[in-house]
Amino acid sequence: MLDEIISQLKDKKSTKRRSAAKKLRKLKSIDAGSYLLIALEEEIKDSRTWETQYQMIMALGESNFKPALSFLKSLVKHNFEATMIYVAIGDSIQRLSMQNEQDITSVFEAIKTGNDMLVSGAIRAMAMLKIVPDDDSIENIINYAIVQKKNDGINFWILAAAPGWSGQKVQEYLGYCSTSKRDEIINAVELARKNKYKKWFPL
């Protein structure tokens, strides 16, 4: 089955290649990593297939194929018209760069770039992986989010990560976000206050 999916990465149709990447993303097979990386290096040449590129990048991260890290980091400076690709890059770099279960160095590296989509991806991975950073890191992330004012995308994923967090700063942040008029933000605040993680299914 794995061999069939891998061979599909070379299909002439982008929809077929994208379907293969989605399947590999679900399988999380590190054995497919080198084939995914080769496919992505070719796919990245065609800006029209950004959705396929997105899925390949996500599959590399979720497969924990660490040899892809340097290539993904090189894409940070690439000029993508479809900015959703940066979300996938940020997400996968966070997954592949972790040195321990609290490591969110890549989140702060993303913040330094000023690319909100990259930051959103890194924070999304933090939420999906239920990472509980150290207190200083939590405070720095919250401070960053507040400076961004009402960036609902970033606030949402910080809230999705927050059920395992504690402390006065976290409670103040939840209060800050509770004034939002968006239902998904309010629901995420309520889950965080109850210390309940939800299983999210991002694109």
Rank of each mutant, 00 (worst) to 15 (best):
I186F: 08
G90Q: 04
K73S: 01
N187D: 15
K149P: 00
S70A: 13
A32Q: 05
K194V: 02
R17K: 06
K149Q: 12
V132P: 00
I131F: 07
E190T: 13
G175A: 07
H78C: 02
I89P: 14
L40T: 07
Q99V: 05
K13N: 08
N195E: 11
E41V: 02
I93E: 06
I186W: 07
I104E: 05
F80C: 10
L37F: 08
N140V: 00
P163E: 04
L69E: 11
I89A: 09
A32H: 07
L72G: 04
E62V: 01
N100K: 06
I5P: 02
K196D: 05
M58C: 11
S166I: 08
A162M: 14
I104C: 06
I104A: 05
A192C: 14
W200V: 12
E4H: 03
V170D: 04
S137W: 00
A122S: 15
I138Y: 00
E43D: 13
L203N: 11
V87R: 12
G175D: 15
S106D: 08
G61N: 03
S97N: 11
A145W: 02
F71T: 11
A21K: 03
D152R: 10
M58L: 15
M84H: 06
N143K: 12
L40D: 07
I6R: 01
S106E: 14
I38R: 08
G114Y: 07
L75K: 12
D134N: 14
K22V: 12
W157K: 05
L174R: 09
Y144M: 05
E184T: 14
I131Y: 07
E51H: 08
